[in-house]
Simulated assay, not measured.
Amino acid sequence: MITGATGDTGAEARGSGRSPASDRILVGLSTASVYPENTEAAFEYAADLGYDGVELMVWAESVSQDVAAVTRLVRRYSVPVLAVHAPCLLISQRVWGADPVAKLERSVHAAEDLGARTVVVHPPFRWQRRYADGFADQVGELEEASGHVVVAVENMFPMRADRFWGAKERSAERLERRGGPGPGVSAFAPSYDPTDVGHEHYTLDLSHTATAGMDAFALAERMGGGLTHLHLADGRGASADEHLIPGHGSQPCAALCRSLAESAFSGQAVLEVNTQTARTRAERRSMLAQSLAFAREHLSR
């Protein structure tokens, strides 16, 4: 059991996304999981399949950047926004401007406006020196100023040298043989492991632990009571981030979910899976339904 994953039992746990009257862990769908379909499609799938809400990935698509447009989708589909993923991917470096400090602040305000309780953010890139220097302080100040939105810093992974040496399957085999990712460079400051700095709240991503060759349970223990958000996906240890359907890789997805369900974890779980291989909408729907069924089974209390 993940003994550190404790929750608040106050009027409503800060960042929990649920009231103490409900013992169910909410399961959301990342809007990134339906790519190349759009944000509205994610709301449609979530409503149709019975997800508890969505995590809004803010990126190049204009609707994802428009709080008013997203609010209309919430009303149209009766699907709430559980979390907002700040635009901190390499491909979204110019979304909401070029200043990462201002973008993180705007993400928290968007979460407040949408009624979400969590903002997911990656550690700063190494070249974002001013942002990196003040990142921990800014995260804490934003949480304190908001009062109910938590900023959950996500574990990432190194850029591995074997990414350039051949197929994903062979890189996964190499990681397994040597017991780690091998030569690589972290693009994040000071580390792709946010517990190296220490924050109040964390997002645990199980696809990223696979690529980084990290022990998911050990990382969850280091996150302790700060583990407030789960990105549920899988990976085989390939050099490129995979975001497989949970149960299709090497990560202990089922065991970790059961451990969270047996603990006082009061956060949310979000399926962040790659469905780009789907040839039809029916096939994508099936992949998302399978992911939800896995989460419901193993996060059940």
Rank of each mutant, 00 (worst) to 15 (best):
G28S: 11
G28N: 07
L29K: 12
S30T: 06
S30R: 04
S33Y: 13
E40N: 04
A42V: 11
A42N: 06
F43A: 07
E44V: 00
Y45V: 09
A46Y: 02
A47F: 09
L49Y: 14
Y51T: 05
Y51A: 08
Y51I: 05
G53D: 10
M57V: 08
M57N: 07
V58N: 03
V58G: 09
W59E: 14
W59D: 13
S62K: 10
V63A: 06
V70K: 01
V70L: 02
R76V: 08
Y77P: 09
V79Q: 03
P80N: 15
P80K: 14
P80Q: 11
V81I: 14
V81E: 08
L82T: 13
V84W: 02
V84C: 02
H85R: 10
P87R: 05
L90R: 02
L90N: 08
L90H: 14
I91S: 07
Q93W: 15
Q93P: 02
R94E: 08
V95F: 07
W96K: 00
G97M: 07
P100E: 04
P100C: 05
V101G: 00
L104E: 12
E105W: 09
E105T: 15
E105S: 08
R106P: 03
V108P: 00
H109A: 15
D113V: 11
L114G: 11
G115E: 08
A116D: 11
R117F: 05
T118E: 05
V120P: 01
V121S: 14
V121I: 13
P123Y: 14
P124L: 07
P124I: 10
Q128S: 12
R129T: 15
R129Q: 11
R130K: 13
Y131L: 07
A132T: 12
G134M: 10
G134I: 03
G134V: 13
A136E: 10
A136K: 10
Q138K: 04
Q138N: 07
V139T: 04
G140Y: 10
L142E: 06
L142Y: 08
E143R: 02
G147Q: 08
G147A: 14
H148I: 06
V149Y: 09
V150N: 02
N155S: 04
